[in-house]
Each structure stands twice: as C-alpha cells, then as structure tokens.
Write a protein that binds this DNA or RNA. Structure first.
Lengths: 337, 337
DNA sequence: CTGTTAGCGCCTTCAT
DNA sequence: ATGAAGGCGCTAACAG
C-alpha cells in the first residue's frame, strides 16, 4: 500500500496537519519539525495522492489543451511548448484532439473538476465552445482566436504582420508580378494575412496580379500551379496562405521541371520546418511558437490563480529567408538547441 | 455551485447510493427509479466529480503517454491514434514529453494516483523507466520496445519486415548496387531494419555496396550524399534508416541537380507523409500507426482492468510505393479519411 | 506553532 | 432493491 499522509505523520511523530503544512509550504512549521517530516516522507517514499488533493482543495493541477489536429507542425510545436511551459509551473497537460464539436470526447475534458483551465488552439467552433466554458466557469485562453470578440483572453498571432512581411519581401526582391493563393476566406487569419500582404504591395504602388482562394491544403497549391502553367500565366512571385499550399505549388513546379526561385519566388506561411525543408530557397513566414505558448500559459495561469491577467498581446511571425548557399539542414540545426 | 450526487438524490427522491448505482450501472436498480435518477441528473446538468471518484475507487480514468519528442510525424500520428482509442474507452490522455529521464517532469506523471496506466513510446531509457513503473505497480505498455526483455508488455513494430520490404523493393527494381545509410547502431530497431534489409539482398545473392551508420537526422543523409557525390560513388539505390535521413539525401541531390529515381532509387522509413511529400517517386516504409495505437491501448486496458492481456504482437510496416505519375498529394488524400 | 474537528464528493460494505 | 454508515487522503477553519 502506498504510504498516506497518516503514515508520515505517525513516523515523524507529528500530526497530519503539520505534514500537510510542509507539503504545501504554508509556513508556520518549526524548522526542526519540517525536517523531521521531510525525513519521514523520504524514508517512506511518500507522494501525496493527487485525487485527494484535488478533492480537498478543488483544484486538479491539470490544464487541458484542445486542438483540432496533430497533423500540423505548428500545432505540434505548440503542444510541446505548452507542455514544457506548464511543467515549469507544476501543471500537467491533458490533450483533447477533436476536429469538431460533435466528436465524442470533444467536451469530455471540459469539466471543472477535470481541469483547472483550458487552452484552445486555433478554434474552429469557438462560438459554441467559449460560452460553454464561461458557463462552467472554466478559465481559458485562446491561441489565435477566430472571433474578434474573444480578444481579451486570447493570444493573437499577428497574421497581418506576417502577410505584410511576406509581401514586402517579394517586393524587395524586385518582383512586380506577384500573386496570392490564400486559404478559406471565412477565417480571420486568412483575411489578416491577405490584408497585410496587400498593404505591403500597395505601399510600393503595386497590386497583386491575382488573388485566388482555396483551402489550406497541398491540393490547392498543386492544382492552381498546374493550371497557371497550362495557361502560361505563372506569376514571378507568389505568397501562399500556408506552407501546405506552398508545398503543393512546389510539387507541381517540380513535376513540370521548373525551379524556385527563378521561375517563381515563393513564400509560405506557418511552419518552421516543412517549407524550408523542401527547398533551400523557399522563404516562409514562421510563427513564434514558443512565445505563443508562453503567453497562453501565462495568461491562463494568471486567471486560474486570480492574478491580474497580462494584457492581450499580438505576436508577430518572423520572415525566415534561407540563404541560397546554406544547406537545408542548417536551419533546423539552429533551431534545435 | 456544481450539483453533487446529493442534489441528484434529493431531487429524484432517492438516496445517494441509488444515484451512485445508476451512475456506475451496477444493476440492482428498479427501472422506474433509474429513469427518475437519470431525469434528475439531466435537469441538474449533473456530472460526477472525477477527483472524488478517483479518490473513492482508486482509479483516475487517465492514461499517460510518455514520449521523447513531438517533432516526429510518426509520433504525432501515434499520439492522435492513442488519444482516439482511449477516448473510445472513456479514458483521458495525459502527455509527458521529455527527451531524457533527467528532464523535470519526466516521471512527474508516473504516479499511481495520477494515471491508471502508461504507454511508453519508443523509449530511450526504458531500463530506468520500466523498473520504476514495476515498483510503483503502474500498468504499462511499450510501443516499439528497445530492450527485448520487455517484449511481453510491448507492441512491437516489425522493423525486420520493414527492412526486408525495403531491400526487396530495391532488388526488384533491378538494382545491384544498393547501399544502406542507417541510424545509430545501438538501437534495436536500427539493427532489425538492417538485418531485414540484408536478408532481402542475400536472398537474391546480393550484398550492399556499403553500410554507413549515422544518426536519425537530415544531417546524416545530407552529409553522406554530398560525400558520395564528391567521391563519385553514388549507389544506384539506397535504403535510409528513416525518412529524415532520406530527406537529407534528397536535399543534397537536389542541390547537385540530380534526380530521384534515375540517379538513385531511395527508400525511406517511418513517416507516411514527410518523405513521399517531398518527392513523388520516393518510396517509404510506413509504420502502421493506427494498429500500433490500438494494440498498445488494448493491451494496457487489459492489464488495467485485470483482463487477460492479448498476446504480444509484431506489427508489420507497409511499403508504400508511389506511382510515378500520381501527383504527390493524392497519397495524402487517400490517407485522410 | 501545533493539533482537533469537519468536510470535499463519491463508493463500498452491510443491514434492511 | 434500497438506504445508513464509514472511509478514500487530504486540507481549511478553528482551537489551544
């Protein structure tokens, strides 16, 4: 049988309350006794029962992370970062992966006694989710909120800046025929990226030669590029709504024996690895994953612990331009400390 | 205040015990009363407090998954599958990501009262981990065990078969100059893959033109391929220890203006997406992620619930040969139901 | 500073 | 088939 607080009390010759006190570092314990207790705990290999703790103090020490998929390298990186950040604060991470709210187990985790708080990653149905959390009184923090109404408890990604950086980069390369192949227009992030991009061109008296809308998928990029090639209207430069689209374009070009850059200057978005990994000269707008995780966790913990929440932040993605001479792997190396 | 079992009892005019009974489906409740109780629960929006449940019955309903990284598409896929599998059985997934046992929080989760069981994914320090789990009496199941001693509670991936399939494929393409660029030789999986590969060649009276050992990284592939090119000894075909290595080779070849296949037939390993995504003609040995997750969870639950554990299984990876005419994205499409 | 007394919400005997 | 009593391990509110 695992030793309980009672065993520790008996062995140290003190009461359970005192043991509880040293356990929670709530002061008011004579140094000598604290040592006695700690000694007893060590000898017994005592570890407090978390269920009992949860029950007694109404907290679980668990934070839930809700996301729609794990097949996304930005998400993966965020999960990892959130995990580390939470661990640093003594919290556990519980995961809930569900593409829609109909999914079994989607709100399974969202019980006040299951988690102390939740982090919502790029929600697709936040309008149903958030009210439910509010109703249940579960603190939450959203990463990359879709609905502007939820700005306050969200960590926002500066998609406008990202799009702007992408556009500026292409302009500075001297291109004048620049296209944009975006994701679905019903996402706020899509629109933001696009607007930033347009702004950058406009500042230089340019307009995109076209804007096409698709889904965030390789298909979109592949099909579009195929079409452009067939119609002989490949632009000089292209800003893709995300890296999967860029990969699709890349595949189509490779199939046609074209190269990047040369036939096309391409800028992806989102992923630090995927896009640059594919082609040494592929530029991408990388999201600041660690910062995102850090802000989300900090904001959430503040709420949970009743501290004053930090003000909402907009984090800016960073344009990662690969040196044409550097081998592809060096980028990754730099980013894997 | 969240309604407690007591509120439900009062509202349904029955005792808490009866409510508890319908909650746990432990029979012995008059159908009429069961309905009453369920009605009351619905009206109150009652959800049992999990901490209290855990405390009372000594179970948490949580399964921990321990892995070394999330920057790995096979792992990601497994996490997702494990998550779904667990959810289907009413369990939660808690994640612990730590590259080493020294990491803070590595064994943080591994407390009997935190989790009912643990799944260990491709352990790198299982010799320290497993004894600890044994000592604590926590049921576990290992995916892709490293130490053969732990076969019994493990789901094994048939790396031998995988390597064999890779070798056979290259032989059947008619190659006679086949190389192998492996991962670290201190991994069981590395050796297994290599042995399977050698077997396939041997069956056809062939031997690899070389076997080189590296790490599971793009660097390994990149550096090696660079070297081969410089020395003018690029083989006709190459089996890479994993997809990252393959990607590295690919990058080096692309930089040198070479193509695949043609200059080289390349087989990667592990990932269903990464490698094939990179090149339409890149063949890969894909691990059966869903099966792996299913077996791991089934085996674990069997232990946890005292049922007879299913016999150890060796799951075979599958050779995925891409049609040279099919666009890269179609493969992904097929695998995204 | 320390111990006593009550629960936290639920489940498990054991009577009825 | 149902309910009363006790306890899971710990902590918070009072006493001393």
């Amino acid at each position: 049988m695992k030793p309980s607080i009672f065993d520790v009390a008996k062995r140290s010759g003190l009461s359970v309350v005192t043991v509880s006190r040293v356990l929670n570092g709530s002061g008011n314990v004579r140094e000598k006794n604290r040592l006695k207790v700690q000694q007893a705990m060590k000898e017994l290999g005592y570890r407090p029962n978390s269920a009992a703790q949860s029950l007694a103090k109404g907290k679980t020490g668990v934070v839930g992370l809700l996301l729609s998929t794990l097949q996304d390298s930005v998400f993966d990186a965020i999960v990892k970062s959130v995990h580390d950040e939470l661990a640093g604060h003594g919290y556990f991470l519980a995961l809930s992966v569900s593409p829609s709210c109909r999914e079994p187990g989607s709100s399974f985790l969202m019980e006040k006694d299951r988690v102390d708080g939740m982090i919502i990653l790029s929600p697709t149905w936040e309008d149903e989710l958030i009210p439910e959390l509010e109703r249940k009184g579960i603190p939450y923090s959203i990463i990359d909120n879709q609905n502007p109404a939820y700005d306050l408890s969200a960590v926002q990604v500066g998609h406008y800046s990202g799009g702007y950086a992408a556009g500026k980069h292409l302009v500075e390369l001297g291109h004048e025929s620049i296209g944009h192949l975006s994701g679905p227009g019903n996402y706020k992030s899509t629109i933001d990226r696009q607007n930033g991009f347009l702004k950058a061109l406009a500042e230089n008296g340019l307009e995109p030669v076209f804007i096409e809308e698709g889904t965030y998928s390789m298909d979109t990029g592949y099909d579009a590029a195929k079409r452009w090639l067939a119609e002989g209207r490949l632009p000089e430069a292209l800003f893709c709504g995300d890296d999967y689209i860029a990969v699709g374009v890349l595949n189509a070009l490779q199939e046609a024996g074209r190269s990047i850059p040369g036939d096309l200057s391409l800028v992806g978005y989102d992923d630090q690895n995927l896009a640059t990994l594919l082609h040494p000269k592929l530029t991408t707008v990388a999201q600041p994953v660690q910062q995102i995780a850090r802000c989300a966790v900090d904001g959430l913990l503040a709420q949970m612990e009743g501290r004053e929440a930090p003000p909402p932040i907009v984090l800016k993605p960073e344009l990662v331009v690969r040196e044409s001479t550097a081998p592809p792997h060096s980028y990754l190396k730099e980013n894997t400390p």
